[in-house]
Amino acid sequence: MSLAESAREEQSAVRRFLLSRGNSAFADRTFHVLMVVCALSIFAIVGLIAWRLVVSSQITWSKFGFHFFYQTFTDSVTGQPMYWDPVNGLFSAVPFVYGTLVSSFLALLIAVPLAVGLAVFLTEMCPRSLRGPLAFLTELLAAIPSVIYGLWAVFVLVPLLREYVNPLLVKTLGWSGFFDDSMNPTGLGFLTGGVILAIMILPIISSLTREVMTAVPHSQREAVLALGATRWEMIRMGVLRNARIGIVGGIILGLGRALGETMAITMVIGNTPEIHKSLLANGGSMAAVIANEFTEAVSDMHRSALIEIGLALFIVTIIVNAFAQLLVWAVTRGAPSQVH
């Protein structure tokens, strides 16, 4: 066999291969369409969720309209205000909206200073060798399921608050009316819910704060230090001031999580449709009342009322999250985004 012959043979092998492959334009187009369909399925899912929630809450919506979110009934026997009576078909979301707002606000009050402190320590003060493990630990805090927080809260946090913290609060701050456990000495209630929510939203706020603080250019820090600032002054003027919008975004994202948090809060808030000034009293929250009553709902009306609360929660969290994303995006623009 001569050299030329073998070369021809080789060439024909390549040709054969190319011919046998066929036309890839069809496969390419199919693949493209398939990926677009996957992407569009996300729209479809969000649309389906919204549509089903709207359709399934029609009964209460057509009966109460917007009154659902602010109406109050009066108990015919005691004359006290009353909000939620599934047996008689009286539904008002007021106590649950109140409970969600109070517990989320408490959670932010506790979590924000701690989260910002942690972020400042991790980015500006911490020795390099400690940074990795500490960051990993706070990530773990985010990975613990809600139901395990609830379990821990029921058996550890609630007794702790009941035996030690609440009596102390009643004694020192009882005069303000916010701390009164005479009606409910169980240790459950708004405050317990707020504390467990705070622990749960801490990692979100601190990791986002860390992200935006790292995004502040080093030259800012160096400039402030060169003017003779102490480390705290450098952090305050060079870092926090530049990162403040992003930090607010992180806090709002934490708020979004706190508003929709279900299991842990269901287990500790007490689940009564009541409004109390005292933070140590039992209450309810929007997510908790759904989790607690939906499977035992006695009527279509009851189910519809719960779904309407869910729809309200859905809309509020979308607005809160979109706003937060916008703020975070404004600061970390340019840096690659992260999945949380």
């Binding site: 729209f43 969000v46 089903r52 399934s56 939906f294 719960l306 779904i307 859905f314 809160v320 999250n321």
Partner: peptide, 23 residues
């Protein structure tokens, strides 16, 4: 799509339960 995915990520899990229940 990116924005919708973020929205979906923020939907409270209890609401997801309700939606699948009624779906």
């Amino acid at each position: 799509v990116r924005f919708t995915a973020d929205v979906l990520n923020g939907v409270p899990s209890i609401v997801m339960g309700l939606a699948i229940y009624s779906l």
